[in-house]
Design a protein around this nucleic acid. Structure first.
Length: 209
DNA sequence: ACCGGCAGGTGGACC
DNA sequence: TGGTCCACCTGCCGG
């Protein structure tokens, strides 16, 4: 069990992490929220920074305004992300479902039920599962949703939260691990969102999103 | 120069 | 209904 190690290592960069978390809660404008969802759609199995670069390009070229064809999106993603054909299709079809999301939920209201919104996203947005819906909601300011990717799972395993070395949890497993993660975060006195950024920092050497 | 390892998982088919 | 398996896909980086 590495509780102390986790806690000690965390202290050194706690200020930077909390500063980053505060920035997430400032994502309020409709278009910014749209591109945050677009970013999360691109990240599976791909390099996060290159995904952010891809989002910058489609933003400049007007994806939100409907100025990009499927082929144009595919070309942009080609050199930036894996599975560009699938993801281009997801981005190309994102606007209508995003409009429903925006109308259906008050995303500025961070104390509304994030679990309900997450379920809606998983069900309705093609390309978004539990991990990416949690990622998206965290990135626009919601709290206490576990973003269970390979890095976090690895660190949860190292911290003794998980018994088996699970790589890709199904829905049932995801929700159970999320509970254990929450419990662990309460035990060490560091929130899941802080731990998420910290674990990710441990694996990649930087605090990103 | 070549090669193995890795990059913030998800949809859909099949049973 | 819910689980398991597989396709998706390419560029970067260290040895």
């Amino acid at each position: 069990m590495e509780t102390k190690l986790v806690t000690n290592g965390y202290r050194e960069i706690a200020n930077n992490i909390d500063k980053r978390l505060q920035e997430f809660s400032k994502v309020l404008k409709k278009k910014d929220v749209f591109y945050e969802l677009a970013f999360c759609l691109l990240t599976p199995q791909s390099n996060a920074k290159r995904c952010a670069e891809a989002v910058e390009i489609v933003r400049e070229k007007g994806l939100f305004e409907g100025n990009l064809s499927l082929n144009e999106i595919t070309d942009i993603l080609k050199t930036k992300t894996r599975f560009h054909n699938n993801k281009a299709s997801y981005l190309f079809n994102l606007k209508p479902v995003f409009q429903v999301l925006w109308a259906e939920f008050d995303l500025a209201q961070k104390d509304s039920n994030p679990l309900e919104i997450r379920e809606w996203l998983v069900k309705n947005v093609k390309g978004v599962g539990l991990k990416e819906s949690s990622h998206f909601l965290r990135n626009i300011g919601f709290r206490n949703l576990a973003i269970l990717d390979r890095h976090i799972l690895k660190n949860l395993n190292k911290s003794g939260v998980l018994k088996n070395n699970l790589k890709s949890p199904n829905k049932k497993e995801y929700l159970l691990i999320e509970k254990d993660f929450l419990q662990f975060s309460q035990k060490v006195g560091i929130s899941m969102d802080e731990l998420d950024l910290y674990f990710w920092y441990c694996e990649t050497g930087e605090i990103f999103k």
